[in-house]
Design a protein around this nucleic acid. Structure first.
Lengths: 145, 145
DNA sequence: CCTTGAACCTATAGGTGCTAGAGATATTAG
DNA sequence: CTAATATCTCTAGCACCTATAGGTTCAAGG
C-alpha cells in the first residue's frame, strides 16, 4: 500500500493533483488508514501513470476519462481509443501550424527592431496594425488546451 | 463616438471581452451616454486592435499591459518592447518543439493500432507505459498560456 | 515514552482569459 | 408607439490545477 505522497512521487504527480483527480472522479476513492489517510494499492499507480502520460501528451481530462473507461472493458474494439488518439493528433498538428505562423510574425517583428525609441519601434507598430496578418479573423492564438 | 458593440465589431473582439478588459484595467473606462452606455473615442479602437493583435500572437495579458505602458511613453528606448517580443518568440519556439515531440509519439500510437480489441490496443498500452518517452520528468504538455 | 518534524487531512480561494446567463434598462427602426 | 435589438450590472462557470490556512497523524530519535 502506498501513501499519497509515495504514489505522487512514483507517478510524477503532485499530491494536490491526485486529490483533485479523485474529486472529479478520475481516480476512485482509495481506502483509508485508521488515521484517515489515503492508502493506495499498486493498481492505482498504473492508473495514475496512465493519466499522467496522457496529460503529458496533451489529452484533455475528458478524453482521458473516456480512455480509462475503455481500458476497463478490454474485450471491445479499440476503434474508439484509436479515434480519440487521432483527434488528439489532429489537434496537436493544428496547434503546431498556428504556432509556426506566430513564430514567423514574431521573428519579423524582432528582426525589424532598430533599437531606437518607442516612437519608431517596429514591435509596437506591428502590433497596432493587422495588415501583415495572413488570416485576420477567427483563429485566436492557439486557444485549444 | 462608438458604442461598445461597434467597437467590438471593428476590432474583432466580443463585447463581454471589452468589458472584461476594462475591468482588469487594460482599457480605460470610457465616457457614458445619458443612458449610461459606454461611448468610445476613435483612439480606443487603436488600443483595442493592438490588444487583440497581441493576444492573437499569444502574448499574455501581463505582457500586453507592459507593451501598452511602453507605448504610452514614446520617448523611451524600445529595448523593453524588443525584449518582450523576444521572450515571446522563445516561448513560442519552445512550445513548437514540445508539440512536435508529442506529434511524433501520437503518430506512433495511431500507426501501431491494429484495430483489434482493447486488450491488444497500442494506444492504451503506450499510455500506460512511459518507457518510450524521451524525457520523462517535468515538461508537462505545453503548460504555457 | 515523548517530542519533533514531515506528511497528511479538509476546505476554500486564486489563477488565466475569457464566456454565458439572468434580469433590467436604453436605443433604434418601422 | 411598439417591438426588436443592444446595452447595463452582477454572478457563476469553463479547464486544470495550485496555494493557503488550520488542523491531525505518523515515523524516527532521544
Amino acid at each position: 500500500m502506498l501513501t499519497i505522497g509515495k504514489l505522487g512521487a512514483a507517478a510524477g504527480v503532485k499530491v494536490p493533483t491526485i486529490r483533485y483527480y479523485e474529486q472529479i472522479g478520475l481516480l476512485p476513492p482509495p481506502g483509508r488508514s485508521t488515521g484517515n489517510q489515503r492508502l493506495y494499492p499498486r493498481a492505482a499507480l498504473d492508473r495514475l501513470t496512465f493519466i499522467r502520460h496522457a496529460r503529458d501528451l496533451g489529452f484533455p481530462l475528458e478524453a482521458i476519462r473516456d480512455l480509462l473507461s475503455l481500458s476497463d472493458r478490454p474485450d471491445q474494439s479499440c476503434a474508439a481509443a484509436d479515434a480519440i488518439a487521432r483527434t488528439q493528433l489532429a489537434a496537436v498538428r493544428a496547434r503546431i501550424a498556428r504556432l509556426t505562423a506566430l513564430e514567423a510574425e514574431l521573428q519579423r517583428m524582432v528582426a525589424q527592431c532598430a533599437h531606437g525609441t518607442i516612437a519608431s519601434c517596429r514591435v509596437i507598430e506591428v502590433l497596432g496594425d493587422h495588415s501583415h496578418c495572413a488570416d485576420d479573423d477567427h483563429a485566436r492564438a492557439d486557444a485549444a488546451a
